[in-house]
Computed example of a mutant assay.
Amino acid sequence: MGWIVGKKELEIVNLVGEHLEKIGETLLSLKNLLDAYLSAHTEHIDQLAEEVRKYEHEADIVRRKVERIMYGGAFLPNFRGDLLGIIEAADKVANKAEYVADVLEIEKPYVPYPLHAELRALLGVSIEAFEALKEAIKYLFEDLNRVAEFIEKTETKEHEVDGIERSLLRKIFAITDISHGQKMHLKDLVRSIADIADRAEDCSDRVQIVSLKRRV
């Protein structure tokens, strides 16, 4: 697997992959929750929100296991810190997904129907940003020559999310038949979903730095 040769290092690489899969499952569960919420299938909201929290918790468990093994001496100290930074930054994606799930389940913001499709698109592209990040991290261990390709894709998706976010905010504040409080509630929901892509891009910045270090 590229420059990874030690048994303990290989175990960590596999766990990093498992951690990223758990984050991906957290995001997929959030997508299912948002779809149900916008479709007014309220009988499933509690169950779907709990599923988001379950996968986020499982991601935390894997992250902590990686940290224990890393502090046990896997990898050289300079790379150890860099990799831990990547894992912690990726974990913030799952944390934000859990926050959005809490907003939907507990606060129950009113989302006017004309915003539904664009809100779904906002989350969909945010998930695509994370999927690109996941590939960048995978190639950090397998093929450094391909890392930049997926870092660029992460950035492209995050930029796309920015555009959808601005469009939604303009529409929200142009609506005349909902209160200012409802508009602020929607603003928080939109920005929190967009934060998923922002956090993916923040993590990709770390991946890029580590990739450059690996080449030296």
Rank of each mutant, 00 (worst) to 15 (best):
I209N: 07
D102Q: 06
L144S: 08
G124I: 01
L189W: 02
E155S: 14
A132L: 05
E105T: 02
D202W: 10
V190Y: 08
A121H: 09
A132K: 09
E105K: 15
F173K: 03
F130T: 07
L169V: 09
F150K: 09
R166V: 07
K183V: 01
E160S: 14
I164F: 03
P109K: 07
L186K: 11
N145S: 15
R199A: 02
E152R: 14
E142Y: 08
I151K: 14
Y139K: 10
D143S: 09
A117V: 02
M184A: 15
V111E: 02
T156D: 10
I175R: 09
D188N: 09
E107Q: 12
D195T: 14
E160L: 10
A132W: 00
H185D: 15
Y113M: 08
E142F: 05
K134V: 00
A132N: 11
L144H: 05
K153F: 00
F173S: 05
I106T: 12
L104R: 05
H180R: 07
A194I: 06
E131Y: 12
S167E: 10
L144V: 09
T154F: 03
K171A: 08
A129E: 11
K171V: 01
A121G: 06
A97C: 02
G163P: 00
R170T: 11
R166P: 00
I106A: 08
E152A: 15
V147N: 10
E201L: 08
E128G: 14
F173E: 03
L122M: 04
E165A: 06
H185W: 04
H159T: 12
H180Y: 09
A174C: 01
E131C: 07
I193K: 04
R206T: 04
K96L: 13
K153S: 09
E118I: 01
T176W: 04
H185N: 15
V190S: 12
S179F: 03
Y99T: 13
R120M: 07
K183I: 03
A194S: 15
D162R: 05
R199G: 02
V100Y: 03
D143C: 03
D205S: 13
P112T: 05
Y113D: 11
I137Y: 08
L115N: 04
V190L: 10
D143A: 10
K153C: 01
K108C: 07
D188W: 01
P114N: 07
V207E: 08
L119K: 01
L115M: 07
V100I: 13
E105L: 12
Y110P: 02
R146Y: 02
L115V: 04
R120Q: 09
I137M: 13
P109L: 08
L189G: 13
S192R: 11
Q208G: 15
D162K: 04
K157L: 12
A136S: 15
D195P: 00
I127N: 02
R206A: 10
E160K: 11
R206H: 13
L189N: 12
F173C: 06
L122F: 04
H159D: 11
A148K: 13
T156F: 06
R191K: 14
E142K: 13
Y113W: 02
I196W: 03
I175M: 14
D198F: 03
I164G: 02
H180I: 10
L119N: 04
Y99K: 14
G181C: 00
P112H: 02
A197G: 13
R191H: 05
N145C: 10
S167F: 00
L104E: 04
V147E: 09
